[in-house]
């Protein structure tokens, strides 16, 4: 039983947290690719930016002496999302729209997005320094411990308050996105434009409006993902830059342009990473009793050493691109 609890704590919970972050980031990447047809490299930095916006807001509230039962990061989330959405619109207007109007190739757009990456990162480091910050300077992380003694376990399943909130927020956002894409006029127009941009234009769909909506969704979701990442680990300017590749991996595995694929891809990559570095000996230890005298499981039976955790995502990314660039689901790119 303890082995199962260990597995839940180490794989199920942390994999889900990471998967939520990846999924929310990958949705933005995939939507931007679907509508604007370019790989938006600055997405990781839009996440970091979101994290810092929330951090500043939380700091302001705390300085004003406001205390809430929920972690500050979540309290300020809606406001931070709105600010991030506006910033995303501004970035598009300032840097991408002029190139788009000139009819620039996707590659040029991609390089431009790297320029945006550098600018955001430079600014964040300039303003906040390159050190690490935490949302929990003034608050403490509540940890829920679910007692498992009733099932014969000696250790509890432990999960922190922000983790629980993350699951709730991610689930709510994914459902909201689903309803938006399948029920609303604009959501359907977005799918239409991702499916066939020329026909969308011919149908009289206001494509400029759809582009704006795309940035609003991508920007605000990136903000949520950034805040979550900051809450789960810590906040630093190059935080998201390190996970922009896993996010691309998630979007590509799910098929670029497919929002649902991105969600599945996010969790797939997250669990692949978590399982690859998981030490199976911890779970299989009871088998030692069955093994003959003198034989025992090695003390570390993980697939790859922990320091290669992110590399797992890179390998999946490269292999997917080489084997099935349109993603693992059927129905090739549109």
């Amino acid at each position: 039983m303890d082995e199962l609890i260990f597995f839940i704590n180490r794989v199920l919970i942390s994999g889900t947290v990471l998967g939520s972050i990846y999924a929310l980031g990958a949705i933005g990447v995939t939507l931007i690719f679907g509508i604007l047809r370019f790989a938006h490299f600055a997405h990781g930095d839009m996440m970091t930016m979101g994290g810092f916006i929330a951090f500043v807001l939380a700091g302001l509230l705390t300085a004003m002496g406001i205390v809430t039962p929920l972690p500050m990061g979540f309290v300020v989330l809606p406001v931070a999302m709105v600010i991030a959405a506006f910033l995303a619109l501004g970035i598009d207007k300032g840097f991408y729209a002029p190139l788009r109007e000139r009819g620039a190739k996707p590659v040029t757009m991609l390089i431009a997005s790297i320029g945006v990456t550098l600018m955001i990162q430079g600014l964040l480091r300039l303003i906040f320094g390159s050190g690490t910050r935490s949302f929990y300077a003034t608050e403490s992380k509540d940890i829920f411990r679910i007692d498992m003694s009733a099932f014969g376990g000696t250790r509890p399943i432990s999960i922190t308050e922000p983790q629980v909130l993350m699951f709730v927020v991610t689930a709510a956002l994914v459902i909201a996105l689903h309803l938006f894409l399948t029920r609303s006029r604009l959501g359907k127009a977005m799918r239409a434009m991702a499916d066939n941009a020329d026909l969308a234009q011919v149908s009289g769909i206001n494509t400029a409006l759809v582009v704006r909506v795309t940035w609003i969704i991508a920007g605000s979701l990136a903000c949520v993902a950034g805040v979550m990442l900051a809450l789960d680990v810590a906040l630093m300017p190059d935080l998201a830059f390190n996970i922009v590749l896993p996010i691309f991996a998630a979007a590509i595995v799910g098929g670029l342009g497919h929002a649902y694929g991105a969600i599945v891809g996010g969790f797939l990559i997250a669990f692949a990473e978590t399982l690859a570095v998981f030490n199976w000996t911890a779970v299989l230890r009871p088998l030692n009793g069955l093994l003959p005298e003198g034989m025992a499981l090695p003390s570390n039976l993980s697939l790859v050493p922990t320091e290669y955790k992110l590399t797992v995502a890179f390998v999946i990314l490269v292999v997917t691109l080489l084997v099935r660039p349109t993603g693992i689901f059927k129905g090739a790119s549109t």
């Binding site: 799918r191 239409a192 066939n196 020329d198 026909l199 011919v202 549109t334």
Partner: peptide, 10 residues
């Protein structure tokens, strides 16, 4: 249009 005149995924 002559070609690609429907949204195939919808």
């Amino acid at each position: 249009p002559q070609e690609k005149n429907v949204f195939t995924s919808m």
